[in-house]
Simulated assay, not measured.
Amino acid sequence: MKARNAGIDWLRGLAILLVIVHHLALPFRLPLRPSLLGHWGPRRLLNAISFNGYEAVFIFFVISGFLIATRIVERDGELARVRLRRFYAARAWRILPLLAPVLAVLALFAACGVPGFAPEPGQQSIGGLLASALSFTFNWYEGRTGWAPAGWDVLWSLSIEEAFYLGFPLLCLWLPRRLLVGVLLAWALALNPLRSLVPASDEVWWEKAYLPGMAAIAWGVLAALLGRRWHPTRREARLLAVLGAICILLPLGWGDLVHRHLATSNMYLLCVGSCAILLACHAHPPAPRRGLGWLARMGALSYELYLSHMFVVLGTVAAYRALLGDRQDWTFVVYVPVVLACYRLAGPLARLTAYLTARLRT
């Protein structure tokens, strides 16, 4: 088994951490600022930690495109030689063993009327939620019916990824290399124009449309192709990593200033920054660091964390409100325990799905 790349896992760990904190922040409305922590904590830092879950998903998209394209090249030699049966089988074995039981639990909670999991009567149905999740049209379903229950809502990004990977290997086989690169480049550069095609008033579809998310995946694929041809020196890789970190931190911490002075370039900065870090880490994998081992582990468990964390988040929010009602003073104390609980849940889930996958394959 190929050794994990600590740098890529750190980036993935940061992204899933931002997603978890964001989803915990939303039910508390203004979770950190009105709490006791907000009296002395820097507002910009608290906002950056609390409200960048959506942006973190786009970092995931870039990482996904980079890793998938890299693996195709490593296994098959080049994208044009991708073996469809093996590719689709690998995606199914990676996605379905955890997705299926998670959907079963979601459906059970919804049927029992658990808040945060049960759809609004007349708006959505359990059958509709399940069918759209399994057909990777969940974001389309939300666009037609409105926001899904919070426990289900994370499934929109999975639909975008898997819809992309249904068609991507076919493009690799059908299009000449230069034309494929041209299509991917045009798609990547069109990220913002594609978002602007949807009226901002249609908030659900504006956030969760297929093509902008796929454009971020295209950025990752292009970075993987560049990494095959360009091998930066260690010094160049360090500079790339620093540049990438700056590009990511700017929209996360100073998104308002970026928007004011650099127009609507936030998502481009996120994609470019993610690509730069991925190229640097791929060329010269950093050595694991003891103080960042937990973050790398979160990156390695990012899929399990992503699908399961809302069970912990919604349970914690319900418990907090049962004890303290709408008081905001002490909301900050739940963040570290929630992240730790999500982490503790993801590990056994990963081992269980690995065991089930191995049994099913034999």
Score class of each variant (00 low, 15 high):
I8W: 08
L11P: 09
V21A: 03
H23S: 01
L24M: 14
L26F: 14
P27Y: 11
L32H: 08
R33P: 01
S35V: 14
G38H: 02
G41Y: 12
S50F: 00
N52A: 04
I59G: 05
F60D: 10
G65N: 06
F66G: 04
I68V: 11
I72W: 06
V82Y: 00
R85C: 07
Y88K: 01
R91A: 02
W93N: 02
L96D: 07
P101V: 02
V102G: 00
V105T: 08
A110L: 00
A111Q: 07
C112W: 07
P115R: 11
Q123D: 12
I126N: 06
L130N: 01
L130D: 04
S132M: 06
S135V: 05
N139P: 08
G143I: 03
L166A: 10
L175G: 09
V181W: 14
G182W: 13
L185N: 10
L197P: 09
S201C: 11
S201K: 10
K208C: 00
G213L: 00
M214H: 10
L225E: 03
W230N: 03
P232W: 04
R235P: 01
G244Q: 06
L252N: 06
W254M: 14
R260T: 12
H261I: 00
N266S: 15
Y268E: 13
L270Y: 06
A276I: 04
A276D: 05
A280E: 04
A280V: 14
H284N: 14
A287P: 08
R289G: 04
R290Q: 00
G291R: 09
G291N: 05
L305G: 06
S308L: 08
G315W: 09
T316W: 09
V317I: 12
A318M: 14
R321K: 15
D326Q: 15
R327Y: 10
D329E: 15
W330L: 15
V333I: 14
V333D: 11
A346Y: 01
G347R: 11
P348L: 11
A350F: 02
T353R: 10
L356W: 03
L360M: 04
